[in-house]
Computed example of a mutant assay.
Amino acid sequence: MQGASAQSVTRIRPEIQALRALAVVGTITYHTWPGYIPGGDAGVDVFFVVSGFLITGMLVREVDRTGRISFRRFYERRVRRLLPAAYAVIAFSVIMTLTFVPRIQWSYFFHEMMMAALGIENWSELVNSQSTNPVLRDLPPTPVLHYWSLGVEEQFYLVWPALILLTVWLVRRSRRKGQGFRTQLRWVFGVVAIGSFIDCVIATYGNVNLGYFAPNARAWELAVGGLLALTPGLGRLPMRARVVLGWAGLAAIVGTYLLVWDQHHFPGWYALFPVAGAVAVIAGGTPVNRWSPAYLAQWAPIQSFGDASYSIYLWHWPIIFLFPFVSGRPTPWWGVLMLIVLGVAVGFVSKRWIEDPLRTGTRARVTARDEGVTRAEHDPAHT
């Protein structure tokens, strides 16, 4: 068992890394040229599905091995994975604000940075958008606006392990023969997914910000990823079916990026397309076939981009957003291109020198080996 665990630590799922790369490319392009890729922010929806898939798989396998979930180890992994780079970007934003941003905006910017550091930036954005005060409703963006998605995921991390463990406890208490906890989890996740999706659609059409920022309206995307992790036999699908799933999934995601123009009703039911696309790509895997998208997904630059996607996501927005404060004028298109390149480069540096040392230090490697998790599971996607 130890040998299998040791091997599994180094296994990477190329299709998941490719999804991460596609998700962050869509998000960056949307933040810079929304007119050309109006649905690019659906990259966040892809990230949510990937996170739900990986986190659920990791937790369920831990229950299979030990019969329980170690909350201490789970949250230690999340802290190592998410907080070092996130706090580094916040620190950078604080320094740049003090140096270049007019003092009149400091209070608002620093308030949002504090909310981002606490993992509740999504709630801050939601409260501001719902305010009866028109000044609050029309507040401009901040360097940490994109931390709303981290808030949704961190709130998901607070609930998901407890929900899985509660289901395990109820199954054991019920004494039903022949019904494992995985079967019951599918029912639980299904109820969460359906209820949250209905809430998302209703909320979006009532108030787009409520559907966009509220974690209850986004939970269905993470729950769908969890359901996928509990679906047996995906690896036994026929080769042609897996090839078709891979291409169809990519088409659904790219199509959403290019064709969803109605931002006033997103996510809503439109989010079904990127979510279904992410599910299809993961279900298709990396079949060995000359017509398979796996050959594209396994291309080294795509894999590297996906591997650094979290840091790239964190750094790209404050760099692009704060530069006009530095230069004192709007950024021309060629300047935006240079800032994107800079953001990507800083993202790779951040991964190498901030993320990795704390995430893959000696203690983290020992924990991963002992728990038998794959690299993709130990390095779960963020937004």
Rank of each mutant, 00 (worst) to 15 (best):
residue 208 V to R: 12
residue 278 A to Q: 06
residue 180 G to D: 14
residue 34 P to N: 03
residue 279 V to F: 14
residue 328 G to I: 14
residue 22 L to N: 11
residue 268 G to T: 10
residue 20 R to S: 05
residue 97 T to R: 13
residue 55 I to K: 02
residue 213 F to H: 12
residue 173 R to D: 11
residue 278 A to G: 12
residue 342 L to H: 03
residue 264 H to V: 06
residue 51 S to R: 00
residue 351 K to V: 05
residue 30 Y to I: 05
residue 293 P to E: 06
residue 137 R to S: 00
residue 175 R to E: 13
residue 289 N to T: 00
residue 171 V to D: 10
residue 179 Q to L: 13
residue 96 M to Q: 06
residue 85 A to N: 00
residue 268 G to N: 11
residue 213 F to G: 04
residue 195 G to D: 03
residue 17 Q to H: 12
residue 357 P to G: 07
residue 47 F to G: 14
residue 14 P to Y: 03
residue 79 V to A: 13
residue 293 P to T: 02
residue 324 P to K: 08
residue 64 D to S: 10
residue 203 A to P: 11
residue 185 L to R: 04
residue 221 E to M: 15
residue 6 A to P: 03
residue 244 V to D: 10
residue 258 L to S: 03
residue 210 L to C: 01
residue 269 W to E: 11
residue 65 R to W: 00
residue 115 M to Y: 03
residue 314 L to N: 07
residue 96 M to L: 14
residue 215 P to F: 14
residue 125 E to N: 13
residue 77 R to C: 05
residue 206 G to M: 12
residue 288 V to S: 15
residue 327 S to A: 14
residue 378 H to P: 05
residue 117 A to Q: 07
residue 332 P to T: 11
residue 282 I to L: 11
residue 78 R to L: 13
residue 280 A to L: 12
residue 334 W to V: 15
residue 18 A to K: 02
residue 254 V to P: 00
residue 286 T to Q: 12
residue 261 W to G: 03
residue 148 W to Y: 03
residue 229 A to Q: 08
residue 315 W to G: 01
residue 242 R to P: 02
residue 380 P to R: 08
residue 56 T to K: 03
residue 343 G to A: 09
residue 219 A to G: 03
residue 301 P to E: 09
residue 200 C to A: 14
residue 31 H to E: 00
residue 361 G to C: 12
residue 367 T to I: 09
residue 105 Q to W: 13
residue 314 L to V: 09
residue 66 T to A: 06
residue 141 P to E: 11
residue 154 E to Y: 07
residue 134 P to N: 02
residue 229 A to F: 12
residue 207 N to I: 06
residue 204 T to M: 13
residue 67 G to C: 10
residue 155 Q to C: 06
residue 298 Q to H: 08
residue 354 I to D: 08
residue 2 Q to P: 02
residue 90 I to R: 12
residue 189 F to T: 04
residue 35 G to W: 04
residue 48 F to T: 01
residue 104 I to G: 04
residue 72 R to Q: 09
residue 348 F to T: 02
residue 47 F to V: 01
residue 322 L to E: 09
residue 145 L to C: 02
residue 315 W to T: 15
residue 119 G to F: 05
residue 144 V to P: 06
residue 242 R to Y: 06
residue 156 F to L: 00
residue 326 V to E: 02
residue 94 V to C: 12
residue 278 A to H: 04
residue 169 W to T: 10
residue 68 R to N: 11
residue 248 A to V: 13
residue 234 L to I: 11
